[in-house]
């Protein structure tokens, strides 16, 4: 059911290699350009953050695995640009660029600070939450988008079918499972649910350690 990006709990990745605290923010110049091109292209308003995340997730497992972080961003962006008709395959292949009607939406340098500072909150008006803090809940199993096979979701595979406890409520937020696929925002109550490590892993590292996930109401059902 899951895609390659859903890697929480996976074995075999080796040790984590910390970067120095004072290391450069961008290891290579092209990393910085990749981030900036992605943000500037996003400002054209042709797709949501959820859609662009899904564009990276749905790279083929082979590409996702061999690409470095910002290469995934570039591949996802190229696919999004074509899928949304912003650029053509001919242009992407190096053909002569045609003028675009979207150029009126170009992000100018003097608006960058304002756009970055204002962000894009996902909090919305919506239904009252069904679960109280302290409620025991069971997550959807299998994890996956309920409407689109292989679609976007924020329920990690490792937490599918697990029972946990609601510890925080965050109001209603845009449902990424819908928004990533152009079905509208469909806001739902969002919760932080805490799981005992022993309910997630066959050999938990230490009894009493915990993992939390932020989960939308439609991922959850009451558990007693």
């Amino acid at each position: 059911m899951s895609r390659v990006h859903d890697m929480g709990g996976r074995y075999g990745d080796g040790r984590v290699k910390p970067d120095p605290e004072d290391g450069p923010v961008f290891e290579r110049d092209w990393h910085a350009r990749a981030l900036a091109v992605t943000l500037a292209a996003g400002a054209l308003g042709q797709w949501s953050l959820d859609t662009s995340r899904h564009a990276r997730e749905r790279l083929s497992p082979k590409d996702y695995t061999r690409f470095s972080y910002y290469e995934k961003w570039m591949a996802g962006l190229a696919n999004l640009l074509v899928a949304n008709g912003v650029v053509s395959r001919d242009e992407l292949a190096g053909g002569p660029p045609e003028p675009s009607p979207l150029s009126a939406r170009r992000l100018p340098a003097d608006r960058v600070a304002g756009v970055l500072a204002s962000g894009g909150p996902s909090l919305r008006e919506g239904p009252e939450p069904r679960f109280q803090p302290g409620a025991r809940v069971r997550t959807r199993k299998p994890a996956g988008n309920a409407q689109v096979p292989g679609g976007h979701t924020r329920l990690p595979g490792y937490a599918a079918g697990a029972v946990g406890t609601v510890i925080l409520r965050h109001g209603c937020h845009v449902l990424p499972d819908a928004n990533a696929h152009g079905f509208g925002e469909q806001p739902e109550p969002l919760y932080t649910v805490v799981f005992d490590a022993a309910d997630l892993w066959s050999q938990p590292e230490r009894a009493g350690d915990e993992v939390t996930c932020d989960l939308w109401e439609s991922y959850l059902e009451p558990a007693s």
């Binding site: 961008f26 290579r28 110049d29 092209w30 910085a32 350009r33 990749a34 981030l35 900036a36 091109v37 943000l39 500037a40 292209a41 054209l44 470095s68 910002y70 290469e71 570039m74 962006l77 190229a78 640009l81 912003v86 650029v87 242009e91 992407l92 190096g94 660029p97 045609e98 003028p99 675009s100 979207l102 150029s103 939406r105 170009r106 992000l107 100018p108 340098a109 608006r111 960058v112 600070a113 970055l116």
Partner: peptide
């Protein structure tokens, strides 16, 4: 990868969709 980014930046700039000065500002 560096050429990929350059190709995308150049294409979007020539189509009038991104402003290279805005990229500098983001960075």
């Amino acid at each position: 990868p560096a050429l990929r980014v350059k190709a995308l930046e150049t294409l979007l700039t020539r189509k009038g969709l991104i402003d290279p000065a805005a990229l500098d500002e983001i960075i």
